[in-house]
Every structure is written in structure tokens, then in C-alpha cells.
Design a protein around this nucleic acid. Sequence first.
DNA 1: ACGAACCATGAAAACGTTTGCATGGGCCAC
DNA 2: GTGGCCCATGCAAACGTTTTCATGGTTCGT
Lengths: 349, 349
Amino acid sequence: MDGGAPEPGAVNPSVNPSVNMADVARLAGVSIATVSRALRDVPGVSQPTRDRVRDIARELSYVISPEASALSRGHTGRVAVVVPRLEAWFYGAMLGAMAPVLRAADLDMLVYETEGEQERTRFLRELPARRKADAVLLTALPLSQTEVARLDLMGAHVVVAGGTVRDFPHVAVDDLAAGRTAVRHLLDLGHRRVAMLRTNDTDGAVWSADVQRTEAWRTTLRDAGLDASDELLASESYGVDAGARGLARLLALPEPPTAVFAYSDELAFSAIAHARRVGLRVPEDLSVIGVDGHPLGETLGTTTVDQHVTDQGRLAAELVVGLLAGGTVADVEVPATLVVRDTTAPPAH
Amino acid sequence: MDGGAPEPGAVNPSVNPSVNMADVARLAGVSIATVSRALRDVPGVSQPTRDRVRDIARELSYVISPEASALSRGHTGRVAVVVPRLEAWFYGAMLGAMAPVLRAADLDMLVYETEGEQERTRFLRELPARRKADAVLLTALPLSQTEVARLDLMGAHVVVAGGTVRDFPHVAVDDLAAGRTAVRHLLDLGHRRVAMLRTNDTDGAVWSADVQRTEAWRTTLRDAGLDASDELLASESYGVDAGARGLARLLALPEPPTAVFAYSDELAFSAIAHARRVGLRVPEDLSVIGVDGHPLGETLGTTTVDQHVTDQGRLAAELVVGLLAGGTVADVEVPATLVVRDTTAPPAH
DNA sequence: ACGAACCATGAAAACGTTTGCATGGGCCAC
DNA sequence: GTGGCCCATGCAAACGTTTTCATGGTTCGT
């Protein structure tokens, strides 16, 4: 409906009353179509014309309207990344690894933080990501059964990073193997009483990594004929001091553990600090191993099972980019590697 | 140009061939305009009609096209947050604090990571944020003079968090005061040889926090008649072990410091770990104070000057929301508070 | 030289909303 | 009973692109 002469009274005065393609076209003495083609490097424009259009566009510091472009082409050029908790190191590392990949593919990164089941549910119910992004990157998200069921309402591509959700393409470590590696390391050192430290989300959500690492702890101990009873499994609510709280409970046991397998490095840090505060030497009196590959673990000398978060993030982003380019999907399994440092040693006896 | 009969051969088959307003309108037996009004809670629709439209929309699981909506109304409903390095705790904390505020205001968060001057320059040159978001939130970004000059090309609102850039509205701590507080704490304990540990970005960018904390260190020492020469200022390139490297250099001095003021908590952690590794007791043989209020500092017992990053992020986001609501601007100064823990003590003598 | 193929260009439909303006019906006050 | 208002609704223009299709001018092979 813009074939006629431009009406004087524009209905929607743009917030940014800047130049549009028509302005560039007018100054370049060409049609809007040619400007569009010239600026996007699509064939069908002679080099001189292309150059002239480019120059004029630059001169006017013209910027294309992403909305109009997206509306017309049918996709947004954006990827939504959903995380449960932005301030945790894990998610920052993930985002940091994804960012360069997406940027290289000219995709913008929309970040959604959904804290707790309520928000996640609301998020999924309102389908806000749908049509706001071409793909959704679910990052190690705890999801309840209902939430999982609801997920396919979105028409967009879905990729999961750092976990598994239904049959969506994913990038993850084998958490069962990671857990076994950690616990076996402790057993190999000679420990016979090995506790586990984890945090539980208050809502009844299922976090695949959590379930599997806990399962690994239990079965590895049982397979070795050792005790893996619930008193040795300390579950605390999330917080900076969760590790300290959990360890305190474990140390109060009639027969306290000589080694602790912490769900995450942050938990391990907190536990180690607590142990030292109450006079225990680590690793002489207590061995602690975490999971993650947190950079501070290197500084602090913490033994850990590195799950190469940066690789996971990068690979997940690459998966998304491939998917959007029309490629095919293939799940990626990232290996978890044991990094022995200074917080594990044979038990004292 | 949709006044005529709908042509059979649609030009742009949408990626997501889902329902649009016209479908809802048809089924509800009303016009598109009424649907638009009904769904957005704007007056001018009777309650029965509104309800019917809502029901039908839900039934069809209709989702509005953000592109079309944005194109028509003239703004995007998005805020761009620009950070230099996503994996650092500081930025995760900032994003985590901003997210709930923006979400509450129905604004989506677009995150741009610009690593190094090259990328920042490219970012500013291509003005990608312009028109992709209604506002830009610059988070503690080191910027060179040229970059700063270029910034006003963007028509969007700009707010700065965790620093100061030109005369843009900002939320920040008084870094001069924060630095003075830290150094004075060391002086008050009796230290007379106080070093500073910082990281330098390789590019010639100016990071206001860095400049001011360094300046505070220098002047506070000089005012007390103490040495603040460059040999006591250890500048290392960014990395997990930057603190260790810096401290190693300081300890190699003919007259090593008895106390260290670290630019950030992460630097302090690394320095403390290094000190202990080489046999120095902290705080008995060496005092270390950082800046930030890193959550792990609580775990590790690190003395710090808390700059309340979470508050800064939240306030900056609130500033943006206010600005977009047509409000007025007012810079916010967040107080930096000394948190004495276990890594500072009087010198040994 | 002459038709064929090609290339650069432009016209205009389509993407899916929002909103100013016009319209018509119902209701109230006098 | 009638004129004036207000309210619910619809029409259609506008937002700024992308892309299909048509057109006219070159160029090349023979």
C-alpha cells in the first residue's frame, strides 16, 4: 500500500526517525529493490551501482531495520538461550562459549533467565521464545515432567546444552561416567567411606546431570561392596555455603566419611573451606573431589572432573548454527576428564 | 497492499506457518483491528468480544509476531546489554541482576559480548545494536577515546553500569573511594609497604574503574608519605593465574610488600593461593584485600571491598526501564563497603 | 547482421501488525 | 419523542523490508 504518493501525515512516527531504504534509493537514483540487493551482496547488481549504493548508505549512516527485514524474510536472526541462574559460573561459561559462535554466524543472542519452576512454567506457557528467535538453546535446565511435555509447542528448533531433554539434539557429558570417574578415583586412593554432596532444587524438577551423578555415586560404591546409604548423601538447598552446610552434616555422622564427592566445584570449594575452618587438613584428613573444571579450581588446587563447559557451549552453539543452516543433527558427547590436584589423597588410617 | 483478494502464491512462505491475527479474526467473526485491541488490553472492545477473541486465540495457540508488532509500533521491546567477557563472575552477576528487572518490564535481553578493542570497534562501527534494541546497557566496558566519541551515533538510549562513560546516565560505585577504603584499611593495620595488583587489557582502552582504583592506591599511599612507585604496581595480562604471576613479581622485589591491594577478588584469590603455595602465611606474612564482593570470597574468607554488583545491575536495569517509560534520568552512586575477613592483619615485623 | 541468452533494474505484492478515522447503533436527557 | 453522545467496531494506511516477475538493453555466436 505504498504505491501511491506518500501521505503527509504518517501514522506511526518512528522512535528512531532515521533514514530508510527509500532515502538511500532516492539519493542513489535507483529503486529500493536494487538497494536491498546491493547491500546484501546478492547477485543482480552491477559493481558500479553496488559501490554507489554502499557509499550513499554509509554516508547517511543507514542501518537496516531488523524488524522489517525479519518480517519479510520470515526468520529473526536470533537465538534464545535459556538458563536457570545467570550468576552461577557454569552458565556464564556456557554463554561465553556460545557467544562467539553465534556472533560469527550473524545471530543475536537473546538470554532468558527462568528462576524456579514457576517462571519456567510461565515461560513455557506463554511461549515467549516462539517467534522471537529462530532457535532455542536450553542450557542444563531442570525440567519437570509436565514442562518437558509442553516443550514441543514451540515451532522453533531446540538444542540442549549440558544435559538431556527428551529427544532434542544435545551436547553433554556422560554424567554417569563422570560420576563414576570421580568416585573411582577416591576408591582407587583407598577410601572406603565416600559421601556425596549435592544441592536440590526445591521444586520437583528433574535435572539429568544431578540424577545421573548421584546414581553413579551410588552404584559405584555398591559395586565395590561399600555403603551408599542416604545418610552419606547430603542434599542442601542452593547457596554459597551449601557445601559447608552439607559437609557439617556429614562430619557429624557417627562414622564420618574420609572422602567427599561434590556435585560441583563450587560445592567442593565451600566444603574444603569448611573442613579447614574446623581444623581438618585437606587432603590428609579429608579428600574432596568436584565436577566442572571451574577456573578457580586451578587456582585453589582442587581435584575435579572437568566437563569442559566451554567446549559444550561452543559445540551446542555450532549445532544450532548448523541446524539453522539447514544441516542435520548429531548429538555430541563431550568426554569428562579427571584432573587430579591437591585435594585428594589416600586416607589417613 | 492486502486490500485485494489474497493471492494464491504467497511470496514469502513463513518459516513458522502458524496462525496469524487474520485467522483469529475470521474465527471470532471480527476484524483484525478488534483482535489486536482485544489481545493487548487496550480500550475500545466490549467485554464479551474481548473474551471470545481471547478464547479463540488461546485455542489456536496464537502467538503474535514480534517483528510485525515492532515494525508497526516503532520500538522493539528489547534491551541490548554489552559486556566484554561473559565468563567473568562480574558480568554474570550483572546480567543476573538485570534479568528479572527487564523481564518484569516485558523487555527481552539481547546480550553482546565484545572481546577486545577490535570487536568493540567493529561493534560500534556497524552499530548493530541500533534499531535492534530500544536501549543499550554498557556494562563496565573499557573504551578507547575514539570508541567513546563514536558512541553517540546510536539513536538509542544508553545507560552505563559499573563505570562511567562520557555523560551517559550511569550506575557505579565511587571507585576512587573504594580504592581508598581498601588501601586505608591496610594502612590502618600498620602496613607501610603496600603493593597493587591489576590486569591490563592489551589494547589502549580506558577502564574508568581501573584508572580510579589505581589512582586511589597511589594517592592514598603518597598522602601517607609512603612509596607508590611503579615497581609496586604489578600489571599482568588477564588470565586465571594473573594474581599469582603478579604476586610472584612483587615477592621478587628487593623489598617485597607486606600487603597487597588487588583490583578484583579473583585476582586476590589467585594471589593468596600463590602466596600459600610458596610458603607464606596469609594474613600473618602477607595481607591481601580485593574488590568486588565475589560470593566465593565469603567461602574463602577473603577481605574485600564489596561493590554490590547485584545492586548495580538491578539499578541500572531499573534506570533503563524508567528511561524507556519516558522517565527522567538520575545517576546512581552505589556505596562500596569494606568487608573484613581473614586475609588481612597487622604486619609481622 | 540477427536472434538468443543474459544481465541489471524496477514495479509491486507480501510479511503481520498498529492505529487514526469513519460509521452506526443504543441510550440518556430533556 | 428526538437530538446528541458515547462506545464498539471496521477500514485501510503505514511500518520497511524481501522477492518474484517483467522489461529493456547488451553481448555473443553464427
